[in-house]
Design a protein around this nucleic acid. Structure first.
Lengths: 210, 210
DNA sequence: TGCGATCTCCGCCAAAGGGAGGAGGAAGGT
DNA sequence: ACCTTCCTCCTCCCTTTGGCGGAGATCGCA
């Protein structure tokens, strides 16, 4: 039984390196490569792969957004976040978005292979460091759980320093609607300004993955 | 004539991918691999390679520091910064430290090969994006060093989400004065809003004790 | 002495942000 | 069918932000 894999990373070098690693095991077939989150989502629909190895820092559509959509739209596809930086923010964000694994790019080939096989069977795979971050987060939950999906969309853009008008354009809704969402966010987070909301969002892992 | 290369990157995947790329051209020989800047410096001394491909984000000793030391201690070795993120700060830092090139990891194999050959001959190689950042920097230096002491005071409070009125009270100055400082900060940092300034400040380590 | 940078403050004004409240529609659970 | 939540958009109104020009005071340096 083969495991069909899609690699999503904007760097050709990384894609090449991953393919080399995966060639070691005949069980793996790389069925597609994506250079950004949007392409990854498209390939997920077309190819319905078993596993997507997803970088988090990508243009057009970032990895976390892509993970969320893949999980919602292609529930049979498991996603492993594969990133170079270990940051509390992205670990929590990726897992919350539905990633079954979070691995660092300095993972050794054999460990990577084991993790992909486990993920294909629905088993959670976290690097030890990532697991530690997650535990710390769960123990002191400061999640914007009460925020709705749309509010989180708005907050994510707000945390990039975007103005209401820009957020409206990005989400293809009216500026008034954005203001409504922002008001709700400020109320729910208990902060007094968008700047405070942005800082809070960064702290808990929303915003651009960096 | 062969070009002797050292690869410095903390991620095994990336090193593997780069080696695959370089195998395409018989002129290249990868004589060593380093997992951090300190190792790269050690290898530079021992092997005296023609070119080092240096990641900037590495543990133990970061790439920019390593570039500076390699250039000072092994002047025959040229260094190409090869990084995943395009950030004004690192472009300027790497070039200032003595990098002869600054390439992104999403560079295509053939372009990478051409760049390494050029670098071995002492020719500058910058990705178009990196070149643009450099030009912008030279034209309008936007380092936080250009901020005055008082402006940094204001920025620090701003990065805590404080409003102009609160900043004024904290610094015991008038609100109008705060507005003047904020305007200068926005201008110097090249950002469009206080929220962006706050995020930038956090990124460079300003803000509350952290 | 003059020059330049910095810090302080002022007023004016346009734009953006944010509070309060209402309202329609879609989706899902009872 | 009903209720709730959410998303969407609206109006009215006020505050905050930020751009612009101007200005006096201090300090240090050429």
């Amino acid at each position: 039984m083969t495991i069909r894999i899609v690699i999503a990373d904007d760097h050709a070098v990384v894609r090449q390196g991953l393919k080399m690693f995966l060639l070691d095991d005949p069980e793996f077939v790389v069925v597609g490569e994506a250079q950004n989150g949007a392409e990854a989502l498209k390939l997920a629909h077309e190819l319905n792969p078993d596993v997507i190895l997803m970088d988090l820092l990508m243009p057009v559509m970032d990895g976390i957004t892509a993970i969320g959509r893949v999980r919602r739209e292609c529930p049979d596809t498991e996603v492993i976040a594969l990133t170079s930086v270990l940051e509390d923010a992205s670990v929590v964000g990726a897992v919350r978005a539905g990633a079954i694994g979070y691995l660092l790019k300095d993972t050794q080939a054999d460990e990577l292979i084991r993790s992909i096989k486990a993920a294909a069977n629905g088993q959670v795979q976290l690097s030890p460091q990532a697991a530690a971050r997650l535990v710390r987060e769960v123990r002191a939950p400061e999640s914007p759980e009460s925020l709705t999906e749309r509010e989180i969309d708005v907050l994510r853009l707000l945390a990039q320093g975007k103005a209401n008008k820009e957020i409206a354009q990005a989400l293809v809704i009216g500026e008034n609607t954005v203001k409504t969402h922002v008001s709700s966010i400020l109320l729910k987070l208990g902060v007094q300004s968008r700047t405070q909301a942005a800082l809070y969002a960064r702290q808990i892992g929303l915003g651009p993955v960096d």
